[in-house]
């Protein structure tokens, strides 16, 4: 009996969403990188994370790279683009945190507006750790950069009405729906946001992310199930592209944050940080992410090669 290569054809398809002026996410009708089964859609995109304030809490190796530019988000973004040529920039408005600098929504909007004026890459705009503050910040920011198709990361259960109305409806941007590693929660939030009136082509989702070793099995399983529901069961409420803020998670865990003095046997701290970021990014891409956010230029290089080789 000769070999008959198996194949899985699905009825469903991930929706293609355009961010910025032409960066396409999604569009696949196969499992991630299953080019032997059919159309794998747009190549997964890579973004680089910058902050609106100096990233005091980042490991020294990252400050050595970006420190010179990191006092000004525009300089920082331009440096990332020049050095690493990412597909998009993720500006995290850490300065808005009520526990920290507590910057006003107007100040945040001014930062994003400057970036929008100075760089042509699409922006992904991430908030601080307060859902309530993010609601007012995102409303102002979306108003300052209307009709840009920028992604707002994220709308959560506590603030989806404000974020959805401003970013997704009034000002022509894109809403990322964030839930915590559970298919049903992801589905429910997507439904709530679409019921609000946000069109599905103005949505992406982040169904939760963690660093490898930190409950990553829940991330993988949630994303596996979401992708199978979207493709195999043609569940339209789960057919949004997935964006994974990998760097938000990997640089704070012990493996990346412990200095060589803390853990002499572990060796070079910078290499550990890169490896955690690379493994987590490859791990979420392999289970269905359409875009990853990274910090280290080396991680960007490696993940780009990884994607290129799998989609060649």
């Amino acid at each position: 009996m000769p070999y008959k290569k198996p194949s899985q054809k699905f009825g469903g398809k991930i929706r293609e969403v355009t961010i910025g002026s032409g960066l396409k996410l999604g569009g696949e009708s196969t499992l991630p990188f299953y080019s032997f089964d059919g159309d794998t859609g747009a190549k997964p995109a890579i973004g680089m994370e910058i902050w609106d304030i100096f990233p005091e809490s980042w490991p020294q190796s990252l400050k050595n790279i970006f420190g010179e530019y990191a006092h000004d988000p525009v300089k920082w973004a331009k440096y990332c683009i020049e050095k690493s040529n990412p597909d998009f920039i993720c500006i995290k408005l850490e300065g808005a945190s009520p526990e920290g600098n507590n910057k006003s929504p107007e100040e945040c909007a001014a930062v994003v507006k400057r970036l929008a004026d100075e760089i042509t890459l699409p922006l992904v705009i991430a908030g601080c750790d307060s859902d309530e503050k993010n609601a007012s910040v995102f409303t102002k920011v979306a108003e300052a950069v209307p009709d840009k198709n920028y992604v707002f990361l994220s709308a959560v259960e506590a603030n989806y009405k404000e974020v959805g109305a401003a970013a997704g409806m009034a000002y022509g941007n894109i809403v990322s729906a964030e839930s915590s590693v559970d298919l049903n929660l992801a589905k429910q939030l997507n439904i709530l946001i679409t019921q609000l009136g946000v069109k599905p082509e103005r949505m992406v989702m982040n169904p939760g992310c963690s660093a490898v070793g930190y409950g990553f099995e829940y991330v993988v399983t949630t994303m596996d199930r979401i992708r199978l529901a979207a493709l195999d069961q043609n569940d339209v409420t789960l057919q949004m592209p997935i964006i994974s803020p990998v760097s938000f998670e990997t640089w704070k865990v012990k493996e990346s944050a412990a200095t060589e003095n803390d853990m002499p046997e572990w060796g070079n701290q910078e290499a550990r940080g890169i490896a955690m970021e690379v493994a987590t990014a490859a791990g979420v891409l392999a289970t269905g992410s359409n875009a990853v956010i990274l910090r280290h230029p080396r991680s960007v290089e490696v993940i780009r090669n990884f994607i290129e080789e799998l989609t060649a």
Partner: peptide, 27 residues
Amino acid sequence: VAMATLFVEKYASIIVLNDMDYSMALP
């Protein structure tokens, strides 16, 4: 590290690497 991650998730049973130091082992 990136490739081995893919093969841990799908579906290799032995993954042969050039080397294994802590930066590779931890993730």
